[in-house]
Design a protein around this nucleic acid. Structure first.
Length: 139
DNA sequence: GCCAACGTTGGC
DNA sequence: GCCAACGTTGGC
C-alpha cells in the first residue's frame, strides 16, 4: 500500500480544521500541478498520507486517510484537475519538522526535500515508518 | 519547437 | 520581503 504526503498552508486549510471534519472528511481541492495531479490519481481508498503544514510550522502534523478516490475538482473551472477526499486518522504527538528531516541523511532523497514545491507527493515505506516512529504515531 | 518573460510556491 | 526553483505562456 502506497503512502503519501499532502501539503497545506494552515491559513488556507489546517490540520485542526481537518480534525473537526471527523469521519466525514473533506475534499482536497486546489491542486493545480500536473505532477501532483498524477499522484492524486494514483491514490487508492484506504491509503494514508502525512498532513504537512507548509509556510507556517513547516512540519508534518498528522495522518489522513483517503476516503474517496480522485474525481474532478469543482474549484477548477477548466475541468482538468482532480481532488480526493481525506479524513483525519491520527495526529503526530511529536510533529516532525522540515528542519529535522533536512538534517537527517536518511531523508536526503525524500520528495519533500528534493522537490520542495510539489504539494502532493509519494512517501516510501521506509520514510513512512521512520517518520511515524519519530512523531510518536503508529505506522 | 525554442526560449525569454512572467507567475507561483515555499523556504529562509 | 526576498529569492530560488519550477511551471506556464506567448512571441518568433
Amino acid at each position: 500500500m502506497a503512502h503519501w504526503l499532502m501539503k497545506s498552508e494552515p491559513d488556507a486549510w489546517s490540520w485542526g480544521q481537518q480534525v473537526k471534519k471527523g469521519a466525514v472528511g473533506e475534499a482536497w481541492t486546489g491542486v493545480r500541478n500536473h505532477t501532483a495531479k498524477q499522484n492524486l490519481q494514483q491514490m487508492k481508498k484506504g491509503e494514508r498520507a502525512f498532513f504537512y503544514h507548509s509556510n507556517v510550522g513547516k512540519e508534518i502534523v498528522g495522518i489522513v486517510e483517503v476516503i474517496k478516490e480522485a474525481y474532478p475538482d469543482h474549484t477548477d473551472k477548466s475541468g482538468v484537475f482532480v481532488m480526493v477526499d481525506v479524513k483525519a486518522v491520527a495526529p503526530l504527538p511529536k510533529p516532525v519538522s522540515l528542519q529535522t528531516l533536512k538534517a537527517d541523511p536518511r531523508f536526503a532523497d525524500m520528495a519533500l526535500i528534493k522537490y520542495s514545491r510539489l504539494s502532493v507527493q509519494p512517501v516510501t515505506e521506509t520514510e513512512w515508518r521512520l517518520i511515524c516512529e519519530m512523531g510518536g504515531a503508529k505506522p
